[in-house]
Simulated scan of single mutants.
Amino acid sequence: MKEVLKVEGMTCDHCVDKVEKFVGEIEGVEHIEVKLEQQEVAVTFNPPATLEDIKEAILDAGYTLA
């Protein structure tokens, strides 16, 4: 599965690294692409990862879902 999420609050490369770290720790996540300019995070994943897991990881990293 591939989902693109709008994420608010990312302002720099450190933010990109933080989102990649938090989402990347989820089992089943295959690829993460953070687009800072567009405030988007594209995630390719398979079970056991779920969209809710990914959303929770982004929130845990300190960012807001649009």
Results as ranks from 00 to 15, higher is better:
Met1Pro: 01
Lys2His: 00
Lys2Ser: 04
Lys2Phe: 00
Lys2Leu: 03
Glu3Gln: 10
Val4Met: 04
Val4His: 07
Val4Phe: 00
Leu5Pro: 13
Leu5Val: 06
Leu5Glu: 08
Leu5Lys: 07
Lys6Thr: 05
Val7Leu: 05
Val7Phe: 04
Glu8Pro: 00
Glu8Ile: 05
Glu8Asn: 05
Glu8Arg: 04
Gly9Lys: 03
Gly9Arg: 00
Gly9His: 02
Thr11Asn: 11
Thr11Pro: 05
Thr11Gln: 12
Cys12Ala: 02
Asp13Asn: 05
Asp13Leu: 07
Cys15Thr: 12
Val16Asp: 10
Asp17Phe: 14
Lys18Tyr: 10
Lys18Ser: 15
Lys18Asn: 09
Val19Ile: 15
Glu20Ile: 14
Glu20Cys: 13
Glu20Gly: 13
Phe22Tyr: 15
Phe22Met: 15
Val23Trp: 04
Val23His: 14
Val23Lys: 04
Val23Pro: 10
Gly24His: 05
Ile26Ser: 02
Glu27Tyr: 02
Val29Cys: 02
Val29Trp: 11
Val29Lys: 02
Glu30Ser: 06
Glu30Gly: 09
His31Asn: 12
His31Lys: 07
Glu33Asp: 15
Val34Met: 14
Val34Thr: 13
Val34Trp: 12
Leu36Pro: 12
Glu37His: 04
Glu37Pro: 01
Glu40Trp: 03
Val41Lys: 10
Ala42Phe: 09
Val43Lys: 10
Thr44Ile: 04
Thr44Glu: 11
Thr44Gln: 08
Phe45His: 03
Phe45Tyr: 08
Asn46Gly: 03
Asn46Trp: 00
Pro47Phe: 01
Pro48Gly: 05
Pro48His: 05
Ala49Phe: 11
Ala49Cys: 08
Ala49Glu: 06
Leu51Thr: 00
Asp53Val: 01
Asp53Gly: 01
Ile54Met: 03
Ile54Asp: 05
Ile54Glu: 02
Ile54Ala: 07
Lys55Pro: 09
Lys55Trp: 09
Glu56Ile: 01
Ala57Gln: 13
Ile58Leu: 10
Ile58Thr: 14
Leu59Lys: 15
Asp60Tyr: 10
Asp60Trp: 07
Ala61Thr: 14
Gly62His: 13
Gly62Trp: 14
Tyr63Ala: 13
Thr64Met: 02
Leu65Gly: 06
